[in-house]
Computed example of a mutant assay.
Amino acid sequence: MSSCRRSRTRRSDPGAVTVESALVIPALVLFLGALLCGLGAFATQSLCQDAARAGARAAARGEPADEVLRVARDIAPGHARVEIGRDGSLVRVGVSVPSWATGVLGLAVEGWAVAHVEPD
Rank of each mutant, 00 (worst) to 15 (best):
R57S: 04
L32K: 12
A72V: 02
A27K: 10
L105V: 07
A52R: 00
R10M: 13
Q49K: 15
S89G: 15
G78N: 07
G88K: 05
L23F: 10
A56Y: 01
A101D: 06
A80V: 06
S7E: 15
A16D: 05
P77T: 10
G78Y: 07
D74G: 12
A58D: 02
G106E: 07
V19G: 07
V82F: 04
G88I: 04
V68E: 00
A58S: 11
P64S: 11
R92Q: 09
I25M: 13
R86G: 08
S12I: 13
I75R: 09
P77N: 08
H116D: 09
W112C: 02
A76H: 00
A41I: 01
G106T: 08
W112V: 02
D87P: 03
G106A: 11
P98R: 14
V93Q: 01
H116Q: 10
D50S: 15
V97T: 02
D87F: 07
A27Q: 13
D120I: 13
G78M: 12
A113D: 01
V91Y: 00
T102G: 04
T9R: 13
A72T: 02
A115C: 14
A101R: 03
D87Q: 08
A113V: 02
R6C: 14
A51K: 00
G33T: 11
R57W: 05
V91I: 12
R11C: 09
V117N: 01
A60G: 05
G62E: 08
S89E: 10
V29G: 06
V97D: 00
Q45C: 11
L32H: 09
D50C: 13
R73T: 05
C37P: 02
L23S: 15
S7I: 15
G88M: 04
E110C: 06
P64Y: 06
E83Q: 13
A108E: 09
S12C: 15
S2C: 14
G15K: 06
V104C: 13
V97I: 09
D66S: 12
G15N: 13
T9N: 11
F42A: 07
A22D: 10
H79C: 14
G94C: 06
T102H: 02
A113F: 01
D50M: 11
R8E: 10
L90N: 03
L107V: 11
A115Y: 02
E67F: 12
A60V: 03
L105E: 05
S89Q: 08
R5F: 15
F42Y: 09
L69H: 08
A22G: 14
L30Q: 15
G38C: 07
E20C: 12
G85W: 04
S96Q: 07
S46F: 11
P77F: 02
L90K: 01
F31N: 09
A108H: 14
A41K: 00
P119T: 08
V71H: 01
V97G: 00
S89H: 08
A101T: 04
D120S: 12
P64I: 04
A72K: 00
A16H: 08
G62H: 05
